[in-house]
Design a binder for these strands. Sequence first.
DNA 1: AATGAATGAGTTTTCATTCAT
DNA 2: GATGAATGAAAACTCATTCAT
Lengths: 213, 213, 213, 213
Amino acid sequence: MSQPKEIPTRNKERTRSLILAAATEEFSQKGFAGARIESIAERSGSNKRMLYYYFQNKEELFLAVMEDTYKTIRDAESALRLLDHHPVEAIRSLIAFTWDYYNLHPEFLHLLNTENMFHASHIKKSKNIGMYNSKLIDTLNEILIRGQNEKLFRGGVDPLQLYISIAALSYFYLSNNDTLSTVFRRDLSNPKAKVERQQHMIDLVLGYLMLSH
Amino acid sequence: MSQPKEIPTRNKERTRSLILAAATEEFSQKGFAGARIESIAERSGSNKRMLYYYFQNKEELFLAVMEDTYKTIRDAESALRLLDHHPVEAIRSLIAFTWDYYNLHPEFLHLLNTENMFHASHIKKSKNIGMYNSKLIDTLNEILIRGQNEKLFRGGVDPLQLYISIAALSYFYLSNNDTLSTVFRRDLSNPKAKVERQQHMIDLVLGYLMLSH
Amino acid sequence: MSQPKEIPTRNKERTRSLILAAATEEFSQKGFAGARIESIAERSGSNKRMLYYYFQNKEELFLAVMEDTYKTIRDAESALRLLDHHPVEAIRSLIAFTWDYYNLHPEFLHLLNTENMFHASHIKKSKNIGMYNSKLIDTLNEILIRGQNEKLFRGGVDPLQLYISIAALSYFYLSNNDTLSTVFRRDLSNPKAKVERQQHMIDLVLGYLMLSH
Amino acid sequence: MSQPKEIPTRNKERTRSLILAAATEEFSQKGFAGARIESIAERSGSNKRMLYYYFQNKEELFLAVMEDTYKTIRDAESALRLLDHHPVEAIRSLIAFTWDYYNLHPEFLHLLNTENMFHASHIKKSKNIGMYNSKLIDTLNEILIRGQNEKLFRGGVDPLQLYISIAALSYFYLSNNDTLSTVFRRDLSNPKAKVERQQHMIDLVLGYLMLSH
DNA sequence: AATGAATGAGTTTTCATTCAT
DNA sequence: GATGAATGAAAACTCATTCAT
């Protein structure tokens, strides 16, 4: 009988990805300046030194986090087969996907807020980020054309503007949930509120797009 | 013989407000953790000691900035006389006001992002922030009812959801302008792009709200 | 009766120069990489933070030390009135001054060794270092000409080569005293040895320069 | 069937000497404190672990470098057959050898500078370093006596002082070449400058030693 | 009320050395 | 013998805050 396979303690890929995951959490919760190297090291179960073994410095680590974060959403978006559905369903799917993804990945929202504070300086260095996203806009354009051809959708809609609006409706609600709940004195984070939000977004977008309702 | 009277540099209110203005800029650009006391003191033309003279510490200063920022937008919103206009015009005005205010006050967007990172902990302490905003929702509700009574607007619209959507459409576009421009490889910050965005937002909201178009 | 004037504890110039003096010692004894910021702070009677208050970083501090060190020897050399003496006496004086200065300022030798390890990168930035020294070579040239005119000195002597040789004879003996004493098993640092060295240097240089002896 | 035999990379002497060579370069260029274990391991083509396999620690490695460096110059000096030549030629040879060796082995100069910063603490531990060098002084003494007997050289010359002076003239010029070139604004490292220096050193030493010229 | 030098506690980063494979 | 990932201790550097003037 052979020894049970032990989890190796010296595993380059594993250590690196544990650090990256820990950094994603920390940067997402505290922002770039507020994040602590010490804290990331602890979360990762490793130590400060290893962090510098795999990444040059805090800045590079943040960049790696951003690239990884974008790669994750890119992969998820790729799995969407929007063109396999009827235009109306496709729009519903896109809204649902956006909403679900932002709910499941709050770190994406926070990291993007941080990245915007730096005027996108980090992702500007990345080459492959742009490529995928233009494909998404092409897809959305095709959906709009199909809907128009079926006399379902209005014409003259810029797919990028529409995509930004769809993202905005979910993003703002979730990213600013705390201040909105406070200022308007209404809990916008419970399940019921979230279901209502989803319905509102779909009504809003389809109400705008569709010619008759 | 008396000494020639020197121009007094001592002006309580002026120094305090210069520091507050400097802090607003700094916190807006760098976030809470990234902001530097030294830098705020320099921007203000005053010095570090004065900063602690008027504000207990960094946290209190940030709180003062947040309150001041909210007070400013409250005052601006108060000046809006939405109920004096026809419902359609009132909606247009609200969208335009939101867009213009966010364009004129980018610090508002950034400070709100920062405040959300802290789960609204600062503004939760403030009592009078909530009051005004519910008045805004009441107003919007009245507009929706009027529009509905005139058979112009659809029914069943939650004024808070609508307000959040209107804010979202401007906020997300402007706050995330850098990452969006980068990822979609299209300059979304030039004047032409901004005019297009405004038109799109109005089309979207009114397209949804209005029964026939 | 007036209060006795107290030494002010908040004195910009004093603190700065105490740090500079402490840094000179530390860099001289340990070299650039071996020097410790903490140690400099302690020697200065101040603290680490002050060091960064007055100097950008370790590198800048070292540069300030080098400039100060060169300024000190420049000032001392300026006080020499070589041209007021007879050529033979002038040469003797130059040798004596060099020897005495290096004995009194061992830090000068060590700092120069360190600076050479960095290929003079620090002093290359300084503008006024060169100016004075060429004046010294001009003076030495004048001495050589006068000696030659008096049929005392040989001709064809390059004043820069001679100056470098005079410096070399003192510098190498003092800077390498420890290794020389070890390798040749003779204490080269006691007063008697030093007197002998002085005599040897004078004999060597004048023996070379003078036409008859 | 057996695997194809791989070329064995395991070679005790070779690895050790590669590490020693790498360490010599690194210590020479950066000094003791500035030298990096990591960097030495990389230069050597080996790895950090091997470094600690062959040498106890950084200190021991430096000591090994110093001993190796001294052994190399000792071996070279042994090859010199000064007593086979006429006294004047012997002096010329010694100057030339010193100059050439320092030119060929700049690391010797830099390591000695570093060792002097440590007050020769490393070579003090070595037993056989002294022995050879006193032989060199004995040889120089013999040359001086022969020259004196031939009425060529002056009397009363201490061979150690003379040796130190000969070494000084080359050492200082080369070791301090960067600062000298900077301060005197003259390139002292090009071939022409070096030829001039050699001539000057010979003129200086023989001018001093020889009774008539 | 105003100034800016001083400070301690922290934060990022580096380094020699060790250890699992 | 060989490799390079892992580690703790220390080093450089930063920051909010206080204090003497």
